[in-house]
Each structure stands twice: as C-alpha cells, then as structure tokens.
C-alpha cells in the first residue's frame, strides 16, 4: 500500500491581475488538497481561472495571497530562481502545443531538464533514452520534432516531463492538438504512469478525457464549484 501524502496543499489562494486601473480576481480563495499518486482533471470554461491555477501549481507564477505547499515545501513566496529550481526538480510539464525545441532531437529535448539540473552528460543520455523507451519512442531518438507526428511529439514531451522524476506532472490540454487516436494513446500513457505512482494533474475541456482521471474538479469564475471522484478512483485511506 502506498503511503498517502498530501502532495499539494493550497489554502486561501487568491490571484489578482491588474489590467491598468481594473483589478481582475482570477482566483478567489481556492482551497485544494491533492494526494500523492492522484490523477486529477481540472475542467472549466475559459476565464474560469483554471489556467491561472495551473500556472501557480506549476510554479510559473506566484499567488497574490494564500499558501501553496508542494511536497511539504512552501513555494508561494519563493524567488523566480528558487521557483525555477522547484520546476526543474518537482514538476513535469506537458503542454497542448508540445513546446519542444524545434532544432534539437528528441533525445536532446528530453535531456534538457537534466542539463539545468546539472546531471552529467553520460547519465543524462542514459536517462533520456530510458524515458523515451518508456513512451515507446526508442526508435526515434535522433528525430527532430518536425520529423515526428503530433502524438510522437507529445510523447517526447511526456518523456521530458518524466526524466527528472518529478513529484507531479502538470498536463495542460495535452490532447488538444491531437487526433482522437493519438489522444487516447497519450491518455493511456498517463494512466500507466499514474498506476506506477506518478501524481498527475490534467487540464482539459473535453469531458471524456477528464473522465479518464480519478478525480474531476470544476472551476468557474475563479472558484472551485465541483469536486468529485469518478468511478475509476481507488479506495484510498
């Protein structure tokens, strides 16, 4: 039995954007706990605050007020460089538009997070190959992104997100740019990773994709309006 940890603990989280004179409350007092090895979907219309939440969860942005603990570390008041280190070690990103370096091979793209983590070249390559094998791309190591299909590109991105053994994987509409077949393949990979114990948070607006997660959270107007477990949820302690 897995040890259940509160991987993410968010308390009274507020994010206010200033657009000139006008203040926009993108997140209003959000409280959210996500346990280790959970697979959570975040849904909501555009402008609901889900992207803002993802940015804060991904340590790309800081909240205006409130607390955010990631893997027992308080990250809400960290400096940009400290956040960069947290992103590097604890978070794996998967984006809708893949966001791979177009000039670099799949292998180099997957090596990138380890480059900034200071991993030695030999180990870097070894681990990158391993991660690419895990997503079924061991025969595409030296292909550049434009020589790969959308599904393959997203798998490279997943390999990249995994390679530093992060605490959570944040996937922002990972299937948005893919045909349904590739989308299902990608979701299968996420499910498998989750079964192996990776915490996954997935933003989507497609209900059937969302329903593949164990828990679905709905956002509207900067507030969490719904939080339920799908039938897939394991019985947790």
């Amino acid at each position: 039995m897995k040890q259940v940890l509160r991987m993410i603990r968010i308390q009274d989280l507020v994010k206010v954007y200033k657009l000139g004179e006008i203040e926009v409350k993108a997140l209003k007092n959000v409280n959210l706990h996500i346990k280790a090895a959970e697979f959570t979907s975040v849904m909501g219309p555009s402008g609901s605050g889900k992207s803002t939440l993802m940015n804060i969860l991904g340590c790309l942005d800081r909240p205006t007020s409130g607390y955010y603990y990631l893997d027992q570390i308080q990250v809400d008041r960290m400096s940009p460089d400290e956040l960069a280190e947290i992103r590097n070690k604890k978070i794996g990103f998967v984006f809708q538009s893949f966001n791979l370096l177009s000039r670099s091979s799949a292998l180099k793209n997957v090596e990138l997070p380890m480059l900034y983590a200071g991993v030695k070249p030999n180990e870097r390559k070894e681990r990158a190959v391993e991660a690419l094998e895990k997503v079924g791309l061991s025969d595409r190591l030296h292909h550049k992104p434009n020589e790969l299909s959308g599904g393959q590109r997203q798998r490279v991105a997943i390999a990249r997100s995994l390679v530093n053994n992060p605490s959570i994987i944040l996937a922002d509409e990972p299937t948005g740019n893919l045909d349904s077949k590739s989308g299902i393949e990608i979701m299968d990979i996420f499910e498998r990773l989750n079964e192996e114990g990776t915490t996954i948070i997935l933003v989507t607006h497609e209900p059937d994709i969302a329903s593949m997660a164990k828990r679905v959270i709905h956002f509207k107007d900067g507030e969490m309006v719904d939080d339920h477990e799908t039938g897939k949820a394991e019985v947790s302690v």
């Binding site: 960069a84 966001n99 997070p113 900034y116």
Partner: peptide, 12 residues
C-alpha cells in the same frame, strides 16, 4: 519560455 519552464534559472 520552454527553457525557463523546465528549470533554467536567470543566470542560465
């Protein structure tokens, strides 16, 4: 943006 998201610091 990609490099920063993945963990590149200011000095990198």
């Amino acid at each position: 943006g990609i490099r920063k998201a993945i963990g590149a610091k200011y000095k990198d």
